[in-house]
C-alpha cells in the first residue's frame, strides 16, 4: 500500500488580482494508493474544487505536477472520470444516449450493439433498468446523478473524481446514492477522490480524509485515516465506538482549527502532513456516556477515558 497511485506534488494555484496575486493554495502534496477512497473536506474557498479540477485535467496548476499511475498528467483523460455536482447530463440525449456517448468516446470503433450492451450494463449497475429511453428532464435529481455515475463508471476509469456529487440531493436520496457508490467502489476496487463538506458522508465513504484549512493560502493540514471497519454500514455507523471521536475531530477542525491552523503551526511541513487516526484512547472525548452500544461491536473494547 505504500505505492503512490495518485501523487499530487507541490501544486499551487494563483490568480492575478488587483494589486498582486491571490494564492488559493500553494505547495500542496497529497498521495493516495490504488483502491483507496479519499475525501477532501474544507470550507468554501479553500480550493478543493480547484484541486479536483487539476486532478481531472480541467484546470492547470500554476506550479507543481500531478502523477497518476506513474505518469504526469497532461490535460483531461479517459482514465480519470468526473462526476459533476450538477450531473451535467446532455438534455438532448436519453439515459442510454448519455452513457453511450461516454462509451463511444472511449472505444471509438465499437459497433452500435456492443456500445449499447456495455452502456446497459452500467445503467443496470446503478439501478436505472427500465429508464434507458427517458431524457434527463424526465428523471428525478437522484436518478440524474445515477446516470452521471453510470456515465463515469462506463469508461472503466482508473480514478473516479467526484465534486460534491450529492450536495444538490435530498437527504434520503443522498443516503441511497452513498450506499450505491460505496458498494460499487468496494466491488470494483475503484480508486475514488471526492470533495464534500458533509462530514458524515466523508466518514461513511472515505478511507482517508484530507482536511484543508481556509483559503486563501489554504494548506492540507491533516490526513485523517478512517478507523472504522471496511465493512461498515450506514445504519449503525454512529454506534461504532470510534465514530464520535472521528466525527468530533473533523468537526473541531472545521469549526475552529481550520481558521487558526496556519498561524498556530509555523513548522507545518506540507510534504509531510501529519496522519491522524482518531479513536485511539487519548483522542476519545465525546463517546463517554454511551455504554449500551458496546454489544453491537463485538471484539472491540471501548476505549478507556479514565
Amino acid at each position: 500500500m505504500t505505492e503512490k497511485f495518485i501523487s499530487i506534488e507541490g501544486i499551487a494555484k494563483r490568480y492575478p488580482a488587483p494589486g498582486g496575486t491571490t494564492t488559493v493554495f500553494e505547495n500542496l502534496w497529497l498521495s493516495m494508493s490504488r483502491g483507496e477512497f479519499g475525501c477532501v473536506i474544507g470550507h468554501s474557498g479553500c480550493g478543493k474544487t480547484t484541486v479536483l479540477n487539476i486532478l481531472a485535467g480541467l484546470d492547470e496548476p500554476s506550479d507543481g505536477a500531478v502523477i497518476v499511475d506513474g505518469q504526469a498528467i497532461e490535460g483531461t483523460s479517459l482514465d480519470r472520470a468526473v462526476i459533476f455536482q450538477s450531473h451535467a447530463l446532455l438534455p438532448w440525449r436519453t439515459v442510454l444516449g448519455n452513457v453511450a456517448y461516454a462509451v463511444t468516446s472511449k472505444w471509438r470503433n465499437w459497433d452500435r450493439a456492443k456500445v449499447k450492451a456495455h452502456a446497459q450494463k452500467f445503467i443496470d449497475l446503478v439501478g436505472l433498468t427500465g429508464s434507458e429511453h427517458k431524457r434527463p428532464s424526465e428523471l428525478s435529481g437522484g436518478m440524474k446523478q445515477r446516470v452521471g455515475i453510470a456515465r463515469a463508471l462506463s469508461i472503466t476509469p482508473k480514478i473516479m473524481l467526484m465534486d460534491e456529487p450529492f450536495s444538490a440531493l435530498d437527504a434520503l436520496t443522498r443516503g441511497t446514492l452513498q450506499d450505491e457508490v460505496r458498494r460499487i467502489c468496494l466491488e470494483t476496487g475503484q480508486t475514488a477522490f471526492m470533495i464534500t463538506h458533509d462530514v458524515d458522508e466523508a466518514i461513511y465513504l472515505a478511507d482517508k480524509i484530507f482536511l484543508m484549512t481556509n483559503g486563501p493560502g489554504a494548506v492540507l493540514a491533516e490526513i485523517v485515516e478512517n478507523p472504522l471497519p471496511k465493512d461498515r454500514g450506514r445504519i449503525d455507523l454512529h454506534r461504532h465506538p470510534y465514530y464520535y471521536a472521528l466525527r468530533n475531530h473533523i468537526v473541531d477542525f472545521l469549526v475552529t482549527r481550520s481558521k487558526t491552523f496556519t498561524s498556530g503551526n509555523p513548522g507545518h511541513d506540507p510534504r509531510d502532513v501529519p496522519v491522524v487516526r482518531p479513536g485511539k484512547p487519548e483522542l476519545v472525548i465525546a463517546s463517554v456516556s454511551e455504554s449500551s452500544q458496546q454489544a453491537s461491536w463485538p471484539g472491540l473494547s471501548r476505549p478507556s477515558t479514565s
Binding site: 480519470r80 459533476f84 456517448y101 461516454a102
Partner: peptide, 14 residues
Amino acid sequence: VRKEWINVARTLEV
C-alpha cells in the same frame, strides 16, 4: 454553451 457540458466532452477526450 454550459461550461459543464464542454467539461463532459473534455473529460471524455472528445
